[in-house]
């Protein structure tokens, strides 16, 4: 279930004073089962990009292939694509609207035409996957904490059993524990199922920790598309475009300058500790 973008362009409000070329000639492939991080400054085109992946926005030009099928060809089943590519928006809890969590999570599968029993089964599975406790299933979404609401909203997408899960800043506004819990849960999902995960985030530390590969967007273009250590090696260029490297990467660079034999490609605390201990010996 790979996703392939070919020379994708998107222009907002063409021909008006507000015309904006939001995506410029974007070509990339996301193989099935990968954990991909997308980073970029505000306004770099990240959100526009991911909204193309399930056909929510139609490209001005260029093609998208899902599982090697062109999604813009006549008669393509867009509805099926939307249930395969699940999109979790920023602040998804603002979209909770049903009287209780269970009913809300059932909404997606219900729209897929499943029977009430099937919906319930899917909802239970999804709620377990996001780690929401059973006592909240019948609670009103408004009674939940920020982190719990966000889990409920993510469960609503998972209940449709997507093959690709796209999350737009799923941890914005959460406290550190809530942040770690959600990301651990997503990483767990990724390990347990063969789902592709595409994670948009402003936290370089989080992206470094979880992503196999990072796509860096800048002014609508793909600036880098590589492994975390390769991408964060360009920390100076990243800073120029509103981004940064994880703190530990900076520490490794400083240590190297001071004569330590350490690998500057380190991006997580564990790796950094290993490197420093080895260099101290």
């Amino acid at each position: 279930m790979s996703i392939r973008l070919e020379n994708l362009n998107y222009v907002y409000s063409p021909g008006t004073a507000y015309e904006k070329h939001a995506l410029k000639d974007v070509s990339l492939t996301i193989p099935h089962g990968e954990f991909v991080g997308i980073i970029g400054h505000t306004g770099s085109g990240k959100s526009t990009l991911i909204q193309h992946l399930n056909g929510l926005i139609r490209a001005t030009s260029g093609q998208i292939y899902y599982n090697e099928e062109n999604i813009y060809q006549d008669g393509y089943n867009m509805k099926e694509l939307r249930s395969q590519v699940g999109l979790v928006f920023q602040y998804p809890e603002h979209q909770l609207f049903e009287i209780d969590v269970m009913t809300d999570v059932c909404f997606g599968p219900k729209n897929q035409g499943l029977t009430p029993d099937e919906c319930r089964e899917r909802a239970l599975e999804a709620l377990r996957l996001v780690g929401l406790k059973e006592k909240y299933y019948k609670a009103s979404p408004f009674e939940l904490s920020g982190g719990q609401k966000r889990r409920a909203a993510i469960a609503g997408v998972l209940a449709m059993r997507p093959r690709v899960l796209v999350l737009d800043e799923p941890t914005a506004g959460l406290d550190p524990k809530g942040r770690d819990d959600i990301l651990e849960q997503i990483a767990y999902l990724h390990r347990q199922t063969d789902m592709t995960v595409i994670l948009v985030s402003h936290s370089m530390e989080d992206i470094a920790r979880y992503a196999d590969r990072i796509i860096v967007m800048n002014h609508g273009e793909v600036m880098y598309n590589d492994e975390p250590k390769e991408v964060f090696a360009h920390f100076r260029e990243l800073e120029e475009v509103g981004l940064a490297a994880p703190q530990v990467t900076y520490i490794m660079h400083d240590l190297k300058e001071r004569g330590f034999a350490v690998d500057t490609g380190v991006t997580t605390v564990e790796e950094a500790a290993d490197e420093i201990m080895a260099a101290m010996r």
Partner: peptide, 23 residues
């Protein structure tokens, strides 16, 4: 801090990890 659902800066976390490993 962790018991209050909080965290420490990544630098502090690394220093703490190194301390645990004997530095």
């Amino acid at each position: 801090l962790k018991s209050f659902r909080l965290d420490v800066p990544q630098v502090t976390l690394l220093a703490d990890e190194l301390k645990k490993r004997g530095l």
